[in-house]
Design a protein around this nucleic acid. Structure first.
Lengths: 101, 101
DNA sequence: TTGACATATACATATATTTATATGTATATT
DNA sequence: AATATACATATAAATATATGTATATGTCAA
């Protein structure tokens, strides 16, 4: 078969877009993004303190954001510093807010 | 107590925003929104055919979108017609796409 | 190389979401 | 009124995601 037989909503396009959106669909992850608006770069310990969460939980969410392409990270000695891959992600949040008004 | 003792990521603001985003974080629901870009208004049967899904599944997702403020609906005889509450939701999709580029 | 620290990962469990199905309700047609 | 159609709602099962605990890995400094 040459053409897809999948139902339309399962076309790669929609799956991928929904995966991206899912990366943002969590209060902790939204807050991480918001923190990175003012503080360009933060390490895991700093997030841990700012979020008042277990280190493992913080790392878990940072990883999701990194794997889905929202965050960059770099090592500096013992610390891992995370930052937004693009400032555009801040627009997404405002864009969503204004849409629901 | 006058001020909130909740951790920052649980402030109403972030919970609510994440709820809104969750409404969009599903391929079927994204496709519904995309359909309503070209066809302003569609009833459940029309969605059912376009999506090749059971009626109950379609109604379920339409309901989520309606309850979260993405869609409007009106009854015309036996049919329920759904439409986008705001064209801005189409921007959200492009906004997300460009952010992840 | 050893110990302390920062972070990641693995696993178990809890919770949320999706899907499937069954049943209910309103409207239209006869 | 009886029946069919269109849709909504409730519930249960399946699946995905989040959380907590424990452990592993990597880095530095002595």
């Amino acid at each position: 078969m040459t053409t897809s037989t999948k139902p339309p909503y399962l076309e790669k396009e929609w799956i991928e877009t929904s995966e991206k959106i899912k990366a943002l669909a969590h209060p902790i992850r939204l807050y991480i993004i918001a923190l990175l608006k003012t503080t360009k770069e933060m390490n895991v310990s700093e997030f841990q303190e700012a979020l008042a969460l277990e280190q493992a939980v913080v790392s878990h969410h940072l990883n999701i954001l990194k794997n889905r392409g929202v965050l960059n990270c770099r090592r500096d000695g013992k610390n891992m510093y995370y930052s937004l891959k693009s400032k555009k992600f801040l627009n997404v949040l405002t864009c969503i807010e204004t849409s629901f008004e």
